[in-house]
Design a protein around this nucleic acid. Structure first.
Length: 798
RNA sequence: GCCGAAGUGGUGGAAUUGGUAGACACGCUGGACUCAAAAUCCAGUGCUAGCAAUAGUGUGCGGGUUCGAGUCCCGCCUUCGGUACCA
């Protein structure tokens, strides 16, 4: 689509032969390298960036051009204003769908990805974008992920020192530990117990490695994964629907595994602080702020009766401690096994088992359905000196805060429901009668039933307690963040191998730059190992090297996307991730356009990586994206089948009408390819005989399923001609509200009608495809034809 | 549940700080041109009633502030995004 002046289009519309004209200019731009952008320090620069796409099997998504057209207009406009404009494009090419497709079809992810990229490229060229294709990046290209691995190694080799408030080389930490032990280190860590200098010096290399893991910015600890016993694999959250696996409908449980993590929490305060200078929408900033979740409170230790252990908690309301009538630990808390008495073991184990089958999200969301068990032990309330029972409860999360709370049922809704369910005492400690409608978070009221605090207003009482706690050695004032360290391990094939070796003693060693890239070993079987290990473990020759064993986990999707905008600046450099010259010239992204769905994930991780590189003096700015707007999304229709959650045996699908009347039964929603559904998008959406057959062919794991419809119950082998299995029809993802139109610059506002007109033109062509419209540009709601994965998630950083 | 956003004709979407709601465009209806069609041009087009002038009504729902509310406040509803392994 060429953008001609409007009047010309009217005047010459009769003769306007778009096919010839577009072909001519497409070739001219390509031959002349019209949009090649040199790094020219003498000229002013402007960097306009689109969030790069995941090359899905279904081709360019209709949502993509929405933002791409807008950024292209900005790029062209800035060029005309005399700027040297960097406007690149690339592919976020590692990911789950390609691997899933490989498992189903045997086509290697590298091959399907390359095919998909070619499709994307031709589609982008057809639209006529002004990208400098000489700077294209693909995250799955070894020459690219060499540097993703290199950055990971830098993170592994650094720790965060609060004294200088930035990342420091690990060698500095070793010196400090040798000189004065962990007490002499003011750093971000997850160390359980202090280490003295003498202890450190007497440690074996393995023990020292274990200590260092508590400081490294890339480190290993126990994490939790979605384990599906029936499929013998770890599932992504996205592959779990309503508590069962999307494929097959099998039960899923949370299982502990050693995982790599990135210590993003070390940067929490800077991620929060540096946001104020960014030209992002307030909504976006608020979301990041809330995600980081800074709170001021007290860290306290509760003694346990008849035991030499303490329970560490964090509270923002120390003033309510006289109302703390019990404690709750996360079921995964380290102390649970030692605190559980013989008499309570059966109850506690039952509760832990139950909780295993609930996802973190369910645990946070379902306030009504709490599960807990009494451990049999008691803690001592340090102010009332009363024994208070220690419970475990699924509403307390292991990785949030300290994984343990003092429960104040009078002033916390969830503590109250828990107390009511298990009949635990409630003592009112805040009189809120002067503040009708005030909640816990308003921190208002007058303290009652609290000995020396009685009569104080809440804010004063909080301050008083901080001092009291510190002066009596019970704990100290502390800032807590909701942000958690990022799990960086995936038990998958199609991702960057983690460049770590373990020696015979189990000590970890990073690869040197000369050994990078560490390429993925060739495999033709991408199924996971039966014990949950990554498929890479199958490449035995690759795993074993001269007495060392390779790490077999791979990196998550956000690894490659956390720094790709830097690679565009100098895409072919083999000695650095980008040259200092290029980095100092292009600096940061001036204008970034992409979807709001990346408001916290990608944008937070990128900012974290960028700050780390900034600490190392490798990038010139503390923030990567100066200005950012969201382009909105496109809506699509999702059709799903009702699958009875039986867990075992054959699958039973129910017609929508039946499923809705069976109120006591639980169903999982299994997405079905929209092409199989008759009258989709309406209340009468259903699968007919042919549709069910197509579905069974597509999802072979349901071959032996039983179908329950209004006219009877049928085995998949004996389906009647006139069968109608009604499906659930809903609108999903891809919303097309356009929040980007409200950009407070005159220039931008003037551009809106043009973008609008372009999009309209697009819509008309997409929705009423004439024979001349490229097939790939038609609307295929919710289909990922090549990947065989029926998710709407065909977009990457978009 | 929690955090963020959105809701205006048949459609995409406009409405500076509160000041004629529906700009502009698509579509639709009628007309001109044509043997006819396409293209183009002209006119009309929120809804209801009316031949008409006109009247009433109208920005998800219910309240409120104001001379005046799409816009501000309170309470809801619906939809979308995120919720830490989709990308």
């Amino acid at each position: 689509m060429l953008i001609l002046p409007f009047t010309n289009r009217l005047k010459y519309s009769m003769e306007y032969n778009h096919r010839d004209i577009e072909a001519k200019w497409k070739k001219y731009w390509e031959d002349q390298k019209t949009y090649q952008t040199p790094t020219e320090p003498s000229r002013p620069k402007y960097y306009v960036l689109d969030m790069f796409p995941y090359p899905s099997g279904s081709g360019l998504h209709v949502g993509h051009p929405l933002g791409y057209i807008a950024s292209d207009i900005i790029a062209r406009s800035k060029r005309q204003q005399g700027f040297n404009v960097l406007h690149p494009m690339g592919y976020d090419a590692f990911g789950l769908p390609a691997e899933q497709y490989a498992i189903q079809t045997g086509v290697h992810p590298a091959d399907s990805t390359e095919t998909n990229i070619r499709t994307y490229r031709s589609q982008l060229d057809n639209i006529g974008f002004s990208y400098d294709w000489d700077r294209e990046v693909k995250t799955c290209d070894p020459s690219y992920y060499k540097w993703t691995q290199w950055i990971f190694i830098q993170l592994y080799d650094h720790y965060y020192d609060y004294d200088v408030d930035k990342a420091q080389p690990l060698s500095a930490l070793r010196e400090k530990l040798a000189a004065s032990g962990s007490a002499g280190v003011n750093a971000a860590h997850n160390l359980d117990a202090a280490v003295t200098a003498a202890e450190w010096l007497n440690m074996s290399p393995y023990e020292q490695d274990q200590v260092l893991m508590n400081y490294r910015l890339a480190y290993r600890k126990t994490g939790y994964v979605n384990w599906c016993e029936a499929l013998g694999t770890v599932l992504a959250n996205d592959e779990v629907k309503d508590g069962v696996s999307e494929r097959g409908g099998h039960p899923v449980e949370r299982r502990a595994m050693m995982q790599w993590f990135l210590r993003i929490t070390a940067y929490a305060h800077r991620l929060l602080e540096d946001m104020k200078d960014l030209q992002w929408s307030d909504a976006l900033k608020t979301m990041q702020q809330n995600w980081i979740g800074k709170s001021e409170g007290a860290q306290m230790f509760f003694k346990v009766q008849h035991a030499d252990v303490q329970i560490e908690i964090f509270t923002t309301r120390p003033d309510t401690i006289f109302g703390a009538t019990f404690m709750v630990l996360a079921p995964e808390h380290d102390l649970v096994s030692s605190l559980t008495t013989a008499a309570q073991k059966a109850n506690v184990d039952a509760c832990i088992n139950l909780v295993k089958n609930r996802s973190e999200r369910e645990r946070m969301a379902e306030v009504k359905e709490m599960n807990g068990a009494f451990t049999g032990s008691f803690a001592i309330n340090p102010f009332t000196h009363e024994n208070i029972p220690i419970w475990i409860g699924d509403y307390v999360l292991k990785d949030y805060g300290t994984g343990a709370i003092m429960a104040v049922p009078s002033d916390d809704e969830r503590d109250l429901s828990f107390a009511q369910k298990y009949d635990l005492p409630v003592i009112d400690v805040v009189d809120k009668s002067d503040y009708p409608g005030a909640s816990l978070h308003d921190k208002l009221g007058k303290i009652i039933n609290s000995d020396f605090l009685n009569g104080m207003e809440v804010p004063a009482a909080i301050e008083f307690m901080f001092q009291k706690i510190e002066s009596s050695g019970l704990g100290r004032r502390r800032t807590n963040f909701k942000l958690r360290d990022a799990n960086f391990s995936r038990q998958r094939y199609w991702g960057e191998p983690i460049p770590i070796l373990y020696d015979k003693d189990g000590v970890s060693h990073a690869l040197g730059l000369e050994d990078l890239p560490l390429e993925l070993p060739p495999l033709d079987d991408f199924k996971p190992m039966s014990d949950g290990q990554s498929p890479l473990a199958k490449a035995v020759d690759w795993v074993k090297v001269d007495g060392y064993t390779r790490e077999t986990d791979t990196m998550p999707g956000f690894a490659g996307s956390s720094w790709y905008f830097l690679r565009y600046m100098d895409a072919h450099n083999d000695h650095n991730f980008a040259s200092a010259e290029a980095l100092n010239y292009w600096k940061e992204v001036d204008f970034y356009i992409g979807g709001a769905e990346h408001a916290v994930g990608h944008l937070m991780y990128s900012r974290f990586w960028h700050k780390f590189l900034y600490d190392k003096g490798l990038v010139p700015t503390a923030e990567p994206f100066k200005k950012l707007v969201n382009q909105g999304m496109i809506q699509g229709i999702i059709e799903s089948l009702y699958l009875l959650k039986s867990g075992e045996g054959q699958a039973h699908f129910y017609s929508e009408g039946l499923a809705k009347t069976m109120t006591d039964k639980e169903f999982a929603l299994i997405p079905v390819h929209i092409d199989f559904v008759k009258e989709y998008g309406s209340p009468k959406s259903h699968l007919d005989l042919n549709g069910i057959r197509q579905f069974l062919e597509w999802r072979a794991d349901y071959k032996g399923a039983t179908f329950h419809t209004e006219t009877g119950t049928f085995e998949s082998t004996a389906l009647p001609e006139d069968i109608k299995l009604y499906t659930k029809s809903e609108t999903g993802k891809m919303s097309k509200d356009i929040s980007m139109w409200s950009i407070p610059t005159t220039w931008w506002i003037n551009t809106v009608p043009i973008v609008s007109a372009c999009m309209k033109c697009f819509w008309d062509r997409l929705n009423n495809p004439s024979p001349g419209t490229p097939k790939a540009l038609r609307v295929y709601p919710n289909s990922s034809k090549n990947s065989g994965n029926l998710s709407t998630k065909t977009m990457s950083l978009y």
